[in-house]
C-alpha cells in the first residue's frame, strides 16, 4: 500500500486521539464515563451509518433493528458462549439481515427505503415481543462480569476499526464507485458499476457494526426487553448526529456526535418530556440551516480564510 504525504500525519493524529479516548476510564468519574460511553457508542453508529448514507443519500432508520438484534444475541447466548464469539455472531446476523433488506429495497426509490427501514425495527420488535409472549417471558437478565470500562474500551476499539474501514473504503474502487453513485446513479450504471452490489455491501457494513455495538452494550443494560432494545429513537438519534456533523467526511459524524450527546444528556436530565421536541428541532435545523452539517460550515470557513490569504 502506498501512503501519500498527507496520510501519515492524519493517521498519527487519529491514533493519538484514539489513545487519549482510551485513557478516559483513568479519570474515575462516573459522569464522564457515562458521557464517554454514549459518545463512543454514537460515534460508532453514526460513522458506520454515514459510510453508507453519506455517498448514497439513502436514509436508513434500521439502526435500532440491527442494534436490538445484537443485544438479543448476547441476551440469549451469554450463558453458553463466550462474549467475543457472541459479538461476532451478532455482527454476522446484522450483516445478513442488512444484505436481505438491501437486496429487496435498494433498487427502489429513497422514500420506500426510509419507510421500509423505519418499519423494520418495529417489525422485529413486534415479532420479538410476540415470541416472548408465547414463551411467557418479558425480557432477559444479562448478568456478566463485564463492566463499564471494558464496554467502553471495546467501543473505542470498534470505533478505531470503523474509521480504518471507512478510510480504506475511501481509497478503494468501492469508495470511488460510491462517490459516482452518489453523484449520478445513471452514469454509474452506464460506466460499468454494479450499483446494487456496491450499495448492498455498504449497507451490510453499517448493519454489521450496529449489531456488534448492540452486542457490546448488552451487559450494560442488565435487563433487556424489546421496547428497550429496539427503541426507534436510537435510529433517529444516529441520523441526526451524522447529518449534524456532516456525512460527507469520515470524521464528520464525530463532529455532530459530541455536541449532540452533551445536549441530549442535559435535556433528558432537566426536561425529560421535551426530548421529542429536541429531535424535531434538530431535524429542522439540519434541513434549513446546516444542509451540509458542521463539516460544511468548517469547510466554507476554511475556504473563505484561504481566499482572504490569497488576496492579501
Amino acid at each position: 500500500m502506498n501512503l501519500s504525504r498527507d496520510d501519515i500525519p492524519a493517521l498519527a493524529f487519529s491514533a493519538l486521539l484514539l489513545g487519549l479516548a482510551a485513557m478516559l476510564p483513568l479519570t474515575g468519574s462516573s459522569y464522564w464515563m457515562g458521557i464517554g460511553l454514549s459518545i463512543a457508542m454514537f460515534t460508532v453508529l453514526s460513522t458506520s451509518w454515514a459510510l453508507f448514507s453519506g455517498p448514497t443519500h439513502y436514509i436508513s432508520l434500521a439502526t435500532a433493528a440491527f442494534f436490538g438484534l445484537g443485544t438479543y444475541t448476547v441476551g440469549l447466548g451469554f450463558e453458553s458462549l463466550p462474549f467475543w464469539l457472541l459479538i461476532i455472531i451478532a455482527a454476522a446476523i446484522g450483516a445478513a439481515l442488512a444484505g436481505i433488506v438491501g437486496l429487496a429495497t435498494l433498487r427502489l426509490s429513497g422514500v420506500y427505503f426510509v419507510i421500509f427501514t423505519l418499519g423494520l425495527a418495529e417489525l422485529v420488535r413486534q415479532l420479538t415481543t410476540w415470541v416472548q409472549n408465547l414463551t411467557g417471558q418479558r425480557g432477559f437478565y444479562v448478568l456478566t462480569d463485564i463492566g463499564e470500562t471494558e464496554i467502553y474500551l471495546m467501543l473505542v476499539g470498534l470505533a478505531a476499526l470503523v474509521f480504518l474501514t471507512g478510510w480504506l473504503i475511501g481509497r478503494s474502487r468501492l469508495g470511488f464507485a460510491l462517490r459516482i453513485i452518489g453523484d449520478d446513479e445513471e452514469v454509474a450504471r452506464h460506466s460499468g458499476i454494479n450499483t446494487a452490489r456496491a450499495k448492498v455491501l455498504l449497507f451490510m457494513v453499517s448493519g454489521l457494526v450496529a449489531a456488534a455495538t448492540g452486542a457490546i452494550l448488552a451487559p450494560r443494560y442488565v435487563y433487556i426487553e424489546p421496547s428497550l432494545a429496539f427503541s426507534p429513537i436510537l435510529s433517529f438519534q444516529v441520523v441526526i448526529m451524522a447529518l449534524l456533523g456532516g456525512p460527507g467526511r469520515l470524521w464528520g459524524p464525530l463532529v455532530g456526535v459530541i455536541p449532540f450527546t452533551f445536549l441530549w444528556e442535559a435535556i433528558s436530565s432537566s426536561f425529560p418530556n421535551q426530548t421529542t421536541l429536541v429531535l424535531g428541532i434538530a431535524f429542522l435545523v439540519i434541513v434549513y440551516a446546516l444542509p451540509r452539517g458542521f463539516v460544511g460550515l468548517i469547510e466554507d470557513g476554511r475556504h473563505r480564510l484561504r481566499a482572504r490569504e490569497g488576496y492579501a
Partner: peptide
C-alpha cells in the same frame, strides 16, 4: 450527465476504473 461533485479528472477516471 456529469458527476458534479468531482473534478474533471475524476469524471473521466470513472470510466477508466469501471
Amino acid at each position: 450527465r456529469m458527476l458534479p461533485s468531482m473534478s474533471v479528472l475524476d469524471n473521466v477516471m470513472a470510466g477508466a476504473v469501471f
